[in-house]
Simulated assay, not measured.
Amino acid sequence: MIINRTHIRRGWLLAAVLALFSAAFVVLPANAETVPFADCPAGQFCLYDGSGGTGTRVDVAEGAKAERDAGTILSVQNNTRMWACVYSRTEYGGGLQTVKPGNPDEYVTNGVRWTVASYKLVPTRALCFTGYERCSDSQVCTFAERNGRGAMTAFDDPPTGPTPHHSYGPEVPSASVFNRTGKHLCFYPNATYDGSWTDENTKTTYGAYVVLRGQSVTVPNPFAGTFRSHELVNGTSECQ
C-alpha cells in the first residue's frame, strides 16, 4: 500500500489552522458595549442632552452653577468631589434632585422628562436646599420660595446713613428673606410703611414683621407674600 505523504502533510496543516482559528474564537473577547457616562472626565460634572449619557456632552468644573438657561439636560454624571444640585425651575426653584459625587442621574423615566432648569455644585448636600448665598453683603433680599430659593429681588441698602425705605408692588416675592445689612429690617403690608396683620388662630395683631440684622428666614403665614414696603432701623422699637 502506497501512502501519499503529501496528503498527510496537507491534512495536518489544515487541522492546525482550524485549531488556531478555534483558539482565537475562544480567547478573543466579544466587542464590549460602550459603558454609559464613561466619557465623562475626572473632576467634571457632565451634562448630556440624551438619556443614559448619550448625545452632546457639556462639562463643567467643581463649583459651577447655572441659575437659568441650563439647556436640554436628560442625564448627568457627577465626577467631581462636590454634590450636584439639579432644579426643575430657574434660580434654584421647584423640584430638587441631588447627585452624589461619583454618581450618574437620569431625567427621563418611562418616556416622561423631568425638566432641568438650573443647577449648582456645592460642598455639602444641605446647601442644595437653600439659595441664600446669592444675596450679597449690605443687601436685603426676598425670594419667591422657601429657604432662599426661586426668583430673588435684591435691595441695596447701606448699613449706615439715613434710614433707607423701599416700597413695591405684589410682584416682589417674599416667601423667604435674608437681611445682610447692619440694621434691623421692618416689613409692612402697605406701600406707605404701615398697616397690620392679624393671626386668625391667635387673634394677635402685628404692626410689622421684623428680620434682625444678619438673619435669614422663611416667612410664615400670615406674612408670606404680603410685604409691600420695608425700612431699616437701628432698633426694633423704631418699626412703625
Rank of each mutant, 00 (worst) to 15 (best):
T163Q: 13
L212F: 09
S136C: 06
S75M: 14
A15H: 04
S51M: 11
Y119W: 15
R134Y: 12
C141H: 05
T6H: 08
R213Q: 10
T236D: 09
T163V: 01
T205M: 02
Q240V: 07
E106M: 13
Y132H: 12
T160F: 11
V17A: 15
A30S: 11
G182Y: 02
W12M: 13
I3R: 12
P123G: 13
F227E: 02
A38S: 15
K65R: 12
V17L: 15
Y188T: 00
S138Q: 15
T115M: 10
S229E: 01
C239Y: 06
N147G: 02
K120G: 11
G71M: 07
L232H: 03
R213W: 08
D49A: 08
V86A: 07
S138M: 13
R146K: 15
T160G: 13
G55R: 05
W83D: 09
T181K: 04
S88W: 01
L185I: 00
A19G: 14
G52N: 12
D39V: 11
F25Y: 15
W12R: 13
G94P: 09
T56H: 14
S75W: 01
W197R: 02
Y209R: 03
W114V: 12
V27M: 06
F227I: 06
E33Q: 11
Q77H: 10
V35D: 05
D137F: 14
V76M: 04
S196D: 07
L74D: 05
S237C: 00
T181A: 08
T80H: 04
R89T: 12
G150N: 14
E67A: 15
G11E: 05
T54N: 09
A154M: 10
S118G: 05
S75A: 12
A154V: 06
Y92R: 14
V211H: 01
S167D: 13
F187R: 02
A24K: 01
S118H: 08
C40L: 04
D199A: 00
E33V: 09
E171F: 08
A64V: 03
T34K: 11
I3F: 04
C239S: 09
V211Y: 03
A208G: 00
E145Y: 07
T109K: 15
H166T: 07
T236E: 07
V58R: 14
T192A: 07
G94L: 05
P189Y: 04
P170R: 09
P170E: 09
G131E: 05
R125S: 13
R5G: 04
T34F: 04
D137L: 07
Q97V: 14
V76R: 08
M82H: 14
T153L: 08
F143H: 14
P189I: 02
D194K: 01
V76F: 07
G169C: 00
T34E: 14
V60L: 07
P29Y: 01
T54P: 06
M1Q: 10
K100V: 13
Y48D: 11
R180T: 00
G93K: 06
G94W: 01
Y188K: 06
N179C: 06
A84H: 04
M82K: 10
